[in-house]
């Protein structure tokens, strides 16, 4: 754990939706080039927390935040920080695959294009590289210019991952990326996550404990808006310090 610096540090974060509190005093660090999983029962705040990490919660009108999220030791909620710049460096893959109603190619090229890459050859290269990294290239290389809506759910999700990779972020946030997929598609995403961590830091939210134990290096267990316990995945699943964690891991509630 010590050989990896934390790329993101969450520091005493509180979050309210209107009057109801959704996150209470969360403090944790996401190590660089590791997979960090957030687990916990529905409504525990894990999705809320992950959406704080690249300021996607800015889109929710009634959302209010206190505390800090430090990325490279700089608070991303500081006044002089542009959320757009943050999201370029901290990409996100969502629960349901959300490809744009464009071609496969245009989906992947979207990010580079909005960041000013116009050259066709360069774009071609980025698209191929991203699709290869997302383990999708072989399946779609002959239909790059067909609608992305025609892909299967698992392919769409990998396309969304490719789309995220295309802007070369440092961190990839995944909000239950497999929950809308069948087990085979989910397995492909899991092995993909394994490969991604050589180049990227990954934070994944999942309600599937087996998934967390398979893919992650560190795990945080959340309950009722609080981070109950955070440690290496092995420690959390084999020797949890808190009874609450143990009860959840062993399936006594949740």
């Amino acid at each position: 754990m010590t050989e990896h610096n934390d790329i993101i540090q969450v520091d005493h974060l509180n979050l309210w939706y209107g009057d109801s509190i959704a996150l209470r005093d969360v403090t944790m660090g996401m190590p660089d080039r590791q997979v960090t999983a957030l687990i916990g029962p529905s409504g525990c705040g894990k999705s809320t927390l992950i959406r704080c990490l690249n300021r996607m919660n800015d889109l929710v009108d009634i959302c209010r935040i206190q505390g800090a999220v430090n990325f490279h030791n700089k608070n991303i909620y500081a006044n002089d920080v542009d959320p757009v710049e943050i999201r370029r460096k901290i990409g996100m893959v969502f629960q349901r695959p959300n490809p744009f109603p464009k071609t496969v190619y245009e989906n992947v090229a979207y990010g580079p294009r909005v960041h000013g890459v116009e050259d066709r050859k360069q774009l071609d290269a980025i698209v191929e590289k991203s699709l290869r990294s997302a383990a999708l290239w072989d399946e779609v290389k002959d239909r790059l210019h067909d609608s992305a809506m025609g892909l299967s759910g698992g392919q769409q999700q990998r396309l969304c991952i490719a789309r995220t990779l295309a802007v070369e972020p440092e961190v990839i946030l995944m909000d239950e990326p497999c929950s809308a997929l069948d087990p085979i598609a989910a397995a492909k995403i899991e092995s993909l996550i394994e490969e991604l961590k050589t180049e990227y830091s990954v934070v994944i939210v999942t309600h599937n404990m087996q998934q967390a134990s398979r893919v992650s290096d560190h795990t945080g267990f959340m309950y009722m808006g609080e981070l109950v316990e955070f440690g290496t995945t092995r420690q959390i699943f084999e020797k949890p310090h808190e009874t609450l964690t143990e009860n959840y891991i062993t399936g006594r509630f949740g």
């Binding site: 996607m56 889109l59 999201r87 460096k89 959300n98 295309a166």
Partner: peptide, 16 residues
């Protein structure tokens, strides 16, 4: 237009 499209775009660092 589904909000997922907006989120997907914003998450790649596109401006509003």
């Amino acid at each position: 237009v589904p909000k997922e499209f907006r989120e997907g775009s914003l998450a790649t660092g596109a401006t509003k």
